[in-house]
Design a protein around this nucleic acid. Structure first.
Lengths: 165, 165
DNA sequence: TATTGTTATACTCTATAACTATA
DNA sequence: TATAGTTATAGAGTATAACAATA
């Protein structure tokens, strides 16, 4: 197993096929793997008639992290307009309800319906299953190591935008 | 620094804030970091008037991996129609030329123009810079470790679709 | 004046499928 | 009939910006 070459990322080892410069970047492999894992999950969600953005929104509501539209928008890194449409979709599926604040009638409080609370665990186990499937290629130590490295990058660069795509 | 909990991914450690179930997945952190790295790169490319798909196509041509439209389509995991539009854009910027095969006039051979050969190294160093910037948070061993883990996942699951988004 | 949420509009990206011209 | 590449169309997803209601 060759090591990732730090000092000369574009060095070609003798006998290699001509490769594109893309593969010399860690970001390339990160994106390759991430796309596959996310695509598979999005595809399963899609079969359930749900987008990733809707799934994320539901989770934020379940966690009590973002209970208004504006809060959701900032948490999810999207405009209020985009959030509004996502909430429309969840509403039409009877997964959320919106109730006007008695204190400030511009504000809506969002909550999951009973139906959503029944649906969410099933979706969560789908997400668990997807994660388990893809990372089963790694043993416990490797998983812990990957987790640590990713968390370190996220922390170092103050990455806070919840992935929605 | 806590470890990634393998056996009970949804366990909450005492004293924690309520978190969404999302953060218990390795796929979540993978996507979070990947999105940030890719978004930054796409943003720089965009300033240069270029999409990631165009950048990838140019690299495939430079590597000699995919010298026809159909080949590009299969390598990049896109339809021929989508590739056709990407090539139109590169063509309009005088970065590629298409020449009809003398053997089979349905086939076009694609090649980078001289202009493209001047532009590509600059873009490549932008890509290098982006990669260096984000992964500077890791030391050499950590970079090597991350590279190895990602390659292992890619190989195990036979991930071949070149990331284009 | 500022803010919450909605809506009208436009844009980007891509797939589907019909099309042409070859083979 | 099959294949290479193009094009017409449609759909998803999101941003921008104008809007109404309220503070």
């Amino acid at each position: 197993m060759e090591l990732y070459s730090i000092s000369s990322p574009r060095t070609h080892r003798s006998g290699d096929q001509p490769t594109s410069a893309l593969e010399t970047h860690l970001g390339y492999w990160l994106r390759l793997v991430s796309n596959e894992v996310s695509r598979a999950f999005a595809s399963v969600l899609h079969e359930q008639g749900m987008s990733v953005a809707e799934w994320v929104a539901m989770n934020q509501l379940a966690a009590g992290t973002a209970l208004t539209s504006a809060k959701l928008a900032s948490t999810m890194g999207m405009t209020r307009g985009a959030i509004s449409k996502i909430l429309d979709k969840l509403d039409s599926k009877k997964l959320i309800s919106r109730s006007i604040s008695s204190v400030d009638s511009r504000v809506q409080f969002l909550s999951l319906t009973e139906r959503a609370k029944r649906v969410l665990p099933r979706l969560t186990s789908v997400a668990d299953g997807n994660d388990n499937h893809y990372f089963a290629a790694l043993d416990s130590d490797e998983k812990a190591s990957l987790y640590k490295l990713l968390r370190k990058l996220a922390e170092f660069h103050q990455m806070t935008r919840i992935p929605v795509e």
